[in-house]
């Protein structure tokens, strides 16, 4: 009797062998890793173009071995639209944070979704503006303290956190909308599945896919990374529930199954 060892988990090939600039415990690292894994599993690395936003993930292309470009703040889905229309047979991913997607680029977000652009939007919601040091985001929770809501977000003054998935679900065109999170290993697995599904749908030409990922920003939240993961579960998830809001391809398959 002898033992034979094999890798159960290997670092994905699409991930470049460099240290990221992200803080310890930042969710972007997990999402990059999952995205890189998805590129490998679907064998689409060589045909993928990533549009990076303004925000912490602006240097995304330094970590993932795909073609990439930077959009102006908030214009990420518009740039992605321009890329996709010029190269309809490429996989185009718009990777965005909460400021990019829901504040300075709300118009671009809604209209790319409304046109049903065959792109994938990965939305990293960490309830604050990380890159600039932790200011209030459109997704900052009520009473959450940030640099620009020092006494906690007061909805009487700044409104309530915006729910992107619910907002986009009012539109007819999007094919797939799901909210997932990173608060524990099981949630991370589901996040990976959602990313793979979104990219798969794009590959099949199903149309606009949107994955919102609740992610931790322990540095700006002022807590330990593990506590950050817990905070997602205890504070963010009640306001931003996990849900598949739209899955047209699956709905069509189910309807087809019933009919036959």
């Amino acid at each position: 009797m002898s033992t034979q060892n094999l890798h159960m988990y290997r670092r994905p090939e699409a991930l470049l062998n460099v240290r990221t600039h992200y803080c310890a415990g930042c969710g972007h690292g997990i999402i990059h890793k999952l995205f890189a894994e998805a590129l490998g599993e679907l064998n689409i690395r060589e045909e993928t173009i990533v549009v990076a936003p303004v925000g912490c993930s602006v240097l995304l292309y330094n970590y993932i071995n795909v073609d990439g470009l930077e959009a102006a703040h908030g214009r990420t889905p518009a740039v992605a639209t321009g890329v996709k229309r010029a190269q309809p047979n490429r996989i185009v991913v718009s990777y965005q944070g909460d400021g990019d997607l829901l504040a300075i680029g709300t118009g671009e977000t809604l209209h790319a979704a409304n046109r049903g652009e065959n792109i994938t939007v990965i939305f990293v919601n960490n309830a604050n503006y990380g890159m600039t040091g932790g200011q209030m985001a459109p997704t900052t929770l009520v009473d959450q303290r940030t640099l620009t809501s020092p006494k906690g977000r007061n909805p009487q003054e700044t409104g309530y956190p915006i729910r992107a998935c619910e907002l986009l679900s009012t539109l007819e065109a999007p094919a797939y909308i799901e909210r997932v999170s990173l608060h524990n290993p099981g949630a991370v697995k589901k996040t990976k599945k959602a990313i793979v599904k979104a990219l798969q749908y794009q590959k099949e030409g199903r149309g606009y896919s949107f994955v919102e990922i609740l992610s931790m920003c322990p540095t700006n939240w002022g807590i330990e990374p593990a506590a950050g993961a817990d905070w997602i579960k205890t504070s963010m998830v009640p306001w931003f529930p996990h849900k598949v809001f739209r899955d047209r391809p699956a709905e069509a398959a189910a309807a087809g199954g019933k009919a036959s």
Partner: peptide, 24 residues
């Protein structure tokens, strides 16, 4: 137990998991 929890949660892809298999 090779559950993969650590590698899933690692933001820096610093952990690979090797599965031990007994053969023979």
């Amino acid at each position: 137990i090779a559950c993969g929890a650590c590698s899933l949660m690692c933001p820096d892809a610093a952990i690979e998991i090797i599965l031990k298999r007994e053969v023979g």
